[in-house]
């Protein structure tokens, strides 16, 4: 991501992408600019924590202890505190995940309409169990609570892309798209 982002929306950039690099620097170039923009929108540094963790995850794919420590340093917080906050939110990955993080909604709306079968088919297609990353590092399939699109079941989110009305028969096509 090289283009400049308006300061008003720097705190709201989707964080799960396929092109993650666990060793990416925190933060340089356009990301440093985004970091400064984020800080400019709040009366204190602590408030920038969620957006900055998001940005770190966008770059590195997950929040390693080293990442957490670095973010803590940048925001003048303790690493213990940052870990506590990060572990509260389900979208922060505290373990590495596959290149494609496949999240299947099993909320009541999707469950009533057959989400279970979609999950089963995705696990079969990726050869994994829930939460496990495939051997080639490509896929991690997880069940997630309501994604807030209950009228369009089953909802599947792959990294930062949402698929609505996914039926078991759509799984094959979805997997092709990811390859």
């Amino acid at each position: 991501m090289s283009e400049s982002i308006h300061p008003a929306v720097c705190s709201a950039q989707p964080s799960q992408r396929a092109d993650k690099n666990p060793d990416a620097p925190l933060f340089e170039g356009a990301y440093k600019e985004r970091f400064d923009h984020i800080l400019s929108r709040y009366p204190n540094k602590r408030a920038a924590l969620l957006p900055v963790l998001n940005m770190a995850q966008e770059l590195r794919g997950w929040l390693s202890p080293a990442t957490i420590t670095r973010v803590a340093e940048l925001l003048e917080l303790t690493p213990d505190y940052v870990r506590s906050v990060a572990s509260f939110y389900t979208m922060f990955q505290l373990r590495p995940v596959g290149r494609h993080l496949i999240q299947v909604c099993i909320g009541i709306g999707c469950d009533l309409c057959g989400a279970e079968e979609v999950v089963e088919d995705l696990l079969e297609a990726t050869g994994t169990r829930i939460g496990e990353t495939s051997r080639d590092g490509k896929y991690t399939v997880v069940e997630v609570e309501c994604l807030g699109a209950c009228g369009f079941p089953t909802v599947v989110q792959v990294n930062d892309k949402v698929y609505e009305n996914v039926k078991p028969e759509d799984v094959e096509g979805l997997m092709k798209e990811l390859d």
């Binding site: 008003a8 929306v9 705190s11 709201a12 950039q13 989707p14 964080s15 929108r41 709040y42 969620l50 957006p51 963790l53 998001n54 509260f88 939110y89 389900t90 979208m91 922060f92 609570e145 309501c146």
Partner: peptide, 12 residues
Amino acid sequence: LDLTVHLGAGAY
């Protein structure tokens, strides 16, 4: 007026 969009991170 400034307006900032702030993204949550997964917590009902």
